[in-house]
């Protein structure tokens, strides 16, 4: 479990993380989403004690990172997979981290095997492809068999097979009761991996909930009618929210499709089309973070 309480980080007059309060629960994969520059990495760095909060706290299973006697056995992390000395072998890269936490060298072999790098264990990390580097980063995160995992953009640079592998790994780890927090700036990726979503923008919490809540929030009833002006007013009088969609259709929110149909029948309005539109997570995400995107293209 990761608990953030009023976590804030300022660099000069720029606020990277703004009063973030959040509970990341065990047993599920939590996706940490936000546009570039939203404060995801800074938040993760504060959880791991790399950046020091301006105010507020971050605890892992009730303790701050610097209070953990053997941090790797409580929280495994991968913030930047390239953070390995290019001349050091993969094995030594993992061995030194294991030694800091009194983790036996046999565990290094285990995690190398787990991520499929056994054959290249003696090769310098600088000679690795992006996918192999990413796997090495994952191996380091798993060294201490930790109950909590924090991974920044874990699927970056992986080939499709690698992406499938890591999704299965994350889900498996969560199913074992671990807390898994993974960040991404791609909603579609999260939709495939995460059970819960936390969306931040400009350092602030924008939305939080189950994946399903996000798709439901984005869905609408699409209506096409020759009397769209009249019907829109009728819908609004009945308490629905109406906005114009493409091809002269009306997008209705706040009312079930069945009730829209009943209203049309009762008022004698001709309908050409009545259907439920599920917005993709991507659209919901764009909608949620539009105002919070740090660098938006001109619209």
């Amino acid at each position: 479990m990761i608990q953030l309480t009023a976590l804030t980080k300022r660099y000069g007059d720029k606020t990277a993380v703004d009063d973030l309060t959040l509970l990341v629960r065990p047993g599920v994969v939590t996706g940490f989403l936000g546009p570039n520059g939203a404060g995801k990495s800074t938040t993760m760095r504060m959880i791991l004690g790399l950046d020091l909060p301006t105010s507020g706290t971050a605890t892992i299973n009730g303790r701050a990172h610097h209070e953990l006697p053997h941090p790797l056995r409580t929280i495994g992390s991968m913030l930047d997979a390239r953070a390995a000395h290019p001349r050091r072998t993969a094995y030594k890269h993992l061995l030194y981290q294991a030694q800091t936490n009194a983790i036996p060298a046999t565990r290094v072999d285990e995690v190398l095997d787990l991520v499929g790098l056994t054959e290249v264990a003696g090769k310098p990390a600088g000679s690795f492809s992006m996918g192999m580097t990413q796997r090495l980063g994952i191996a380091a995160a798993l060294l201490g068999d930790p109950p909590v995992l924090v991974l920044d953009e874990p699927v970056n640079g992986l080939d499709p097979e690698g992406v499938r592998w890591i999704r299965a790994l994350m889900r498996g780890l969560a199913a074992e009761g671990r807390t898994v927090l993974i960040s991404s700036h791609l909603m579609s990726e999260m939709a495939m991996t995460a059970d819960r979503l936390v969306v931040i923008g400009k350092g602030r919490l924008i939305a939080e909930g189950e994946i399903g809540d996000f798709t439901a929030a984005g869905s609408a009833v699409a209506v096409r009618t020759p009397e769209s002006g009249v019907f829109a007013r009728l819908l609004e009088l009945a308490g629905a929210h109406v906005r114009p969609g493409p091809d002269d259709e009306l997008l209705v929110t706040g009312m079930e499709a069945a009730d829209v149909g009943r209203l049309a029948a009762a008022e004698g309005v001709t309908l050409f089309e009545l259907s439920v539109r599920h917005a993709s997570l991507e659209e919901t995400f764009m909608e949620l973070t539009r105002d919070a995107a740090e660098y938006g293209a001109a619209r």
Partner: peptide
């Protein structure tokens, strides 16, 4: 500086905890 240069200070600190 071999840690700063290769970016391993992050992993090293995350592993060791108290600075």
């Amino acid at each position: 500086t071999s840690e700063y240069g290769s970016g391993t200070l992050g992993p090293s600190l995350a592993a060791v905890g108290r600075r």
